[in-house]
Nucleic acid binder design. Structure first.
Length: 379
DNA sequence: AAGGCGGGGAC
DNA sequence: GTCCCAGCCTT
């Protein structure tokens, strides 16, 4: 018996396992009883939905929660977003990662002010023209904020669908995602497209989970699911293995005089673009090498104190770091050395509300508030 | 088609 | 340690 609902009297609603047409009814019924309360689900205006979807790209719900309301309070509408200074944007995004997202968010806000009279477009095609909006986000915004029947296919949806259909195709491939989007366009309910998309993702995040065994006993789709039928859920989805990480060694310098500390703004492109960091040296350096480097850059070193080693893991890279807390005589405005020309001198407390520093430096950012009260006898 | 781009939680 | 997250952009 491979009909999941042969007891229904309406013949039109009888489907084989793996048929996506069978999804909407049980899914929406489950969603009505199990949807999470999330900040962006209250008053789902186009702007709120859009900002939340950008924040949620490759980022878990729990990570986004503390960022969303603060962002909305600071930049309550598209006009405010379009005019915000870059440092304000990066500070609001600090710790969330993928910082190009917020720069693209602003570029899109400017597009909307200039090309759409300040109104977020409602069609899938127009949304796709905005910076930072791809097929997933165009589907999410158009369906959740505007009620348009477009699918929003993310990693959750790809996993749920792959298991339901026992689909061996690699979900990392563009064509597979496109095919799933096309299939969902055929079955997405026209009366509740936003809820359907959110419900699919909710199932993926809470029931048909990415790590570990899925909670099939509580899944409203288990009678439709081909993988559940033979217990092969964990074999899906098929996905390409992640590339190996390369290791990079660095020496981080917390340079201070009596009042100020040194930061450096990273280049506008590449890793952690536009974020602030401490000056650093390539490789693991000794205190003597650090002193030599700083002297070349016109500083008189009074003390060098080793800090604890630290490690930070990115997707495709690892930083292994040594650190030194360095007291210099005076951070002169005169820029002399090869690197110090790009340094900025700040009051340590300014990192709290002004300069965005990525999490990679968290272990050393503490050095900004450390007292430098080491007895002179140590030197 | 492939690589770059953060950070953290779950196992 | 590994996996992967409400993906998108560039090359």
């Amino acid at each position: 018996m491979d009909k999941y609902n042969e007891n229904l009297t309406d013949v039109k609603e009888i489907f084989r396992k793996g048929d996506l047409r069978a999804i909407p009814k049980p899914l929406l019924k489950w969603y009505d009883n199990n949807r999470r309360i999330l900040p962006w689900r209250e008053q789902p205006t186009p702007y709120r939905v859009w900002v939340s979807e950008i924040m949620l790209q490759q980022t878990r719900v729990e990570a986004v929660k503390p960022y969303f309301q603060r962002f909305m309070d600071t930049l309550p509408d598209i006009a405010a977003l379009a005019e915000a200074p870059e440092e304000t944007l990066l500070k609001l995004w600090e710790g969330l990662g993928y910082y190009n997202r917020v720069r693209n968010l602003q570029k899109a806000a400017i597009q909307i002010m200039e090309d759409y009279a300040g109104i977020m477009p409602d069609s899938y095609e127009e949304l796709l023209k905005l910076k930072g909006i791809g097929s997933y986000t165009a589907g999410a915004v158009s369906s959740i904020a505007y009620g348009k029947p477009n699918p929003a296919v993310d990693g959750n949806v790809l996993r749920v669908i792959a298991r339901i259909r026992k689909d061996d195709r690699c979900i990392s491939e563009d064509k597979v995602k496109k095919a799933v989007e096309k299939d969902l366009w055929e079955v997405i309910p026209k009366d509740r497209p936003g809820d359907f998309n959110q419900a699919m993702m909710e199932i993926g995040a809470c029931v048909c989970i990415p790590n570990g065994a899925p909670h099939c006993e509580e899944c409203p789709l288990r009678q439709i699911c081909l993988a559940y039928e033979d217990g092969t859920q964990q074999q899906y989805p098929n996905k390409a293995k992640a590339k190996e990480r390369t290791i990079e060694e660095k020496t981080i310098l917390i340079i201070r005089d009596a009042e100020l500390a040194v930061l450096h703004k990273r280049p506008a492109k590449g890793l952690l673009a536009g974020m602030y960091e401490f000056p650093s040296m390539k490789g693991f350096c000794t205190a003597e090498e650090v002193k030599e480097y700083l002297t070349e850059n016109g500083l008189q070193v009074l003390r060098i104190q080793p800090l604890e080693d630290a490690k930070h893991i990115f997707s495709h890279r690892e930083w292994h770091m040594k650190g030194y807390l360095i007291r210099v005589d005076e951070l002169a405005p005169k820029k002399v050395g090869p690197d110090s020309a790009d340094w900025i001198y700040i009051e340590p407390r300014e990192t709290q509300d002004r300069y965005p520093i990525p999490s990679a430096f968290a272990a050393y950012a503490k050095g900004l508030s450390m007292q430098l009260g080491i007895p002179r006898t140590m030197f």
